[in-house]
Structures are given as structure tokens and as C-alpha cells.
Simulated assay, not measured.
Amino acid sequence: MTLTVWHYYNTDGQVAGLQTLADSFEADHPGVTVKFQYVPVEQMTTKAVTAAGAKKGPDVLVFGASGTYSLAQAGAIEPMESWWDGFADKDQFPEGVMQTVDGELYGVQGYVNLLGLWYNQDLLDQLGAEVPTTIPEMENTMAKAVAAGKQGITLTGKPGLESQWQGFPWFTSAGFSYGDPEAAPMAQTYSMLQDWTAKGYLSKEAATWDQAVPFQQFAAGNSVFAANGNWQIGAAAEATFTYGVAPLPITSEGGVLLGGEVQNVGAFSEHKELAQEFLEDTFFSVDGELTLLDSFGSIPARADAASSSKISDDPLLSTFVDIVQKQGRPSPSPQVPSKNVNTVETLVGDYWSKAVAGQGTPDALADELMDQLVPLLQD
């Protein structure tokens, strides 16, 4: 019997990690072969939707969260409450990794990627500063860094989806919610950004930066802080200074979006129970998630995975796991109508970029955004 799994991982480490999962499952299930099929990320949703139209498809799909609505609407995946509710370990997973459409569960993220506040400990020591827990504390330290000839913070401001993800902690910290959108919190956030650029804390060039460039700036020792993710752990090892990571210094209203791929059984699988068992034993198990931590650099979603010495003994990993539990929010945001997710996230990211670049006053930018955003959130 062959179990097919569609995915879009293509690095050597990722491929090796998947094979480790397959070898373990096959060893426990004689006669079963796990077959992985690579589908380029930009083709995954279309290929799965097309297959569903012909009443075909894989046993397991590993897909991007933004494709959940399209896959659900096409019938490529089905609601999984009946199975998930019977999974003994379901309570180990935070609400933030549940992917829902119209209130029904269509996928779970076995692992996540997320943002934290990277800091240059050597520079903090030189400045006589502590790791900040509030935005005013961070701004005070950034002022000292600029006075010492360094940048305050690096982050992405590239138009589009990445900037919505980057901006979410900050504008939700100011009180913005997709469920009750108001201009004032966005204007406050844009004012903060433009204050940072005016004072030299943040480079206006960040308006064109993806996630890679700002971290290169940080790793080179040019900035005291970087708002960036767990996937930079490997890159951070190249730094010649002592560094660490902490939760972003946002208010209790703010949250960090949990990225990472979603898993579910294919609607047209001929081996649904076996496919469910595969996910429970691999992507949704402690051992499986720790395997993916090694090969993908992603953070386990399970709360009990934090008890592993692999994580608890590592200050960076343990901090990211703590952020998942305390600040993690579902991505995409459940308040955004599923069919408009890409449009909304692109729009919000574009205006974050405009604010960084100084393309308008905070109030004008916020009002322009609301004029376009509110109708999309009411559909």
C-alpha cells in the first residue's frame, strides 16, 4: 500500500527530514510505502484544486495557509473535526495553529514560524541597557544606539504579504483588529514608524527589504535590534557578537502571526484512516516535530515539545516556543473573510511599506487604507 504526500519542500535538509519521517512510519507499518511528491509552491493550490475536480488527489496535503480557503471550496480537503476531536493529543496544540473556514477546521500546523525581537547583547551592555519589554523602553535604547553610531532596529517593509506579517504585532499592539477595523490604531502605528525613520532608528530603505536583508544588517553588527524570525537561527551563528531573542515588546492586545505549513488528509484519499495515523505519528507527534525542527528550523506547535532538552536547553528555541504559546495568533487572521485573505494581506502590507517610506502622513495613509479595507472585511 502506498501513501502519497504532496508538499513543496526542496532544500536538502527538508527532503532529508521528510524521509526520516517516512522511514519511521514505514518501520511501524510493514507493507506501507510513503511516497512524497514535490509540487512547486506556486502550483500547489492549483494542482490540488484541479485534481479535486477530477475526484483525485493525494492522501496527505502539506500546504500554505493562504490556500486553505481555495482547497476547502474545491473539496480538495474536508473538515477534520470528527477526526481531530478524537486525537488524544489535540490539547497540546494552541488555537493559533488551527486553520478554519466558516468556523470549520480544515487543517492544523504541526510547526510554526514566527517573529521575535533579536538583540545584540554586546551593544546593549555598551549602552547600559536591558532587553526591552515595552515599546518606550525599546525606543529609549534605540536612541542610545543611534547616538553611538548604530541603527536602532531592522525589519522588513517590502510591499505585500511579508509586510502584513511584519506589521501585525505592532498595529494589533496599538489596538487594531480585523474584526473591528479603525483608522486610529493604524495611524498610531504609522506615526511610530515615521518617528523611527525620522530619528534614524530605522532606515527608510527598509521599505524595500524582505526578511533576509534586515537580518544581514543585524548580523553584521549594525543594529541593536531586529524584528525577525526563528528561521534566522542559522544565519545568526555567523555573527561575531553575543546575541539573543526575546518576545516583541508589544501590549497584551498585540499578537504574532504563526506561519508555517498546514497539514490535512486529502478529500479523495483511498486510505483516510492510515493518512490520519500518518499525520498523528509524524507532523503532529513530539518526535516528528523535533525531527522537523532539526531539518526545517521550524518551531514545534505542541506545548509538550518544549519539555525536550533539544528546546529547553537552547535559549533561542525555548524563547520562540514561549512566544508561540503567549503571543501566537492564527495566520491568516480568522476575522478576514477567507476569500479575501490574499487581497487584504497584500493591501495592509502595501500600506505598512508606504508608512516606512514616508509616502503620506500617518492619518492620510490610515484613512486611505480603511476606505479600501473595510469593504473587504465585510464580504
Rank of each mutant, 00 (worst) to 15 (best):
P159I: 09
T189N: 07
M142V: 01
T172A: 00
E130M: 11
G200K: 08
P159R: 06
L114M: 12
G149V: 12
P132I: 05
Q126N: 14
T133R: 10
A143C: 00
E104T: 14
M138N: 12
Y190N: 06
F171Q: 02
M138Q: 15
V146A: 02
D102T: 03
G96R: 07
D122H: 01
L117N: 02
N120Q: 03
M186H: 04
Q166I: 13
G200A: 11
L105I: 03
D125E: 15
A183H: 06
M192N: 14
E130A: 15
Y119K: 01
T133V: 10
K199A: 15
G157L: 06
D122K: 00
G175N: 09
K150F: 11
A129W: 01
Q109N: 06
P181A: 07
N120L: 04
A129R: 03
Y111L: 13
G200D: 14
Y106I: 12
G157D: 12
A145S: 14
D122R: 00
W165L: 10
M142S: 00
I135C: 07
T100I: 09
S191T: 14
Y190E: 08
S173K: 00
E139S: 08
E130Q: 15
Q166K: 03
F93Q: 09
Q109G: 05
L117V: 04
G160C: 14
G103D: 15
G96I: 09
A143V: 07
T197E: 12
Y178P: 05
L124N: 08
S191H: 07
D180N: 13
L114G: 05
K158G: 02
G179F: 07
Q164V: 01
V146P: 04
V112Q: 11
G160I: 13
Q99N: 13
G167M: 06
A183S: 14
F171E: 03
D195V: 05
V131E: 01
G200H: 10
E139M: 09
